[in-house]
């Protein structure tokens, strides 16, 4: 995983885990690696790994069973909520970027439509 140098690492790892949950790479209720293994997997500091789980827990994305480890939430609504939140974030970012370029929200929506049609054409005609 490549890291963005200006965002705290624990936030970036949290984001990566959330993405895995949203996309289904991590199933609901699945056991997550131990703190040590998470650190090894992402080659991050174990204290950072610990913090990742703490923060995820406080957001109810995962929970700890005493003596058994950390698990992904079993709450389906939570996953949907996360998905929505992440989508919202991307939209916000997009709109903010467009605004910086002086493009109105309406125009931005139209550009998305156009982008989608172009992409569809490309897949139809082949590369």
């Amino acid at each position: 995983m490549d890291y963005n140098p200006s965002i705290p690492i624990y936030l970036q790892v949290m984001m990566s885990i959330k993405r895995d949950i949203v996309t289904g790479r991590l199933a609901l209720g699945e056991k997550l690696p131990s703190v040590r293994d998470l650190a090894l997997q992402y080659t991050i500091n174990p204290n950072t790994a610990n913090r990742v789980y703490k923060e995820l827990e406080s957001e109810h994305v995962c929970f700890t069973r005493r003596g058994m480890g950390t698990f992904v939430t079993e709450d389906e609504g939570m996953a949907a909520q996360m998905k929505a939140a992440m989508a919202q974030e991307l939209v916000d970012e997009y709109l903010k970027g467009m605004q910086k370029l002086g493009i109105s929200a309406e125009e931005a929506v139209r550009l998305i439509e156009k982008g989608r049609e172009d992409a569809a054409d490309q897949t139809e005609n082949g590369p």
Binding site: Y3, P5, I9, R36, A39, L40, Y42, T43, I44, N45, P46, N47, T48
Partner: peptide, 30 residues
Amino acid sequence: IVRCVLDAASPDVTLVVSSHLVDELEKVAD
């Protein structure tokens, strides 16, 4: 080597890694 270092990390252990290559240690060190 980085994995080896992480493997030794534990609450009662102190690790000091010197380098003049900054990026390598950025995510490993706290």
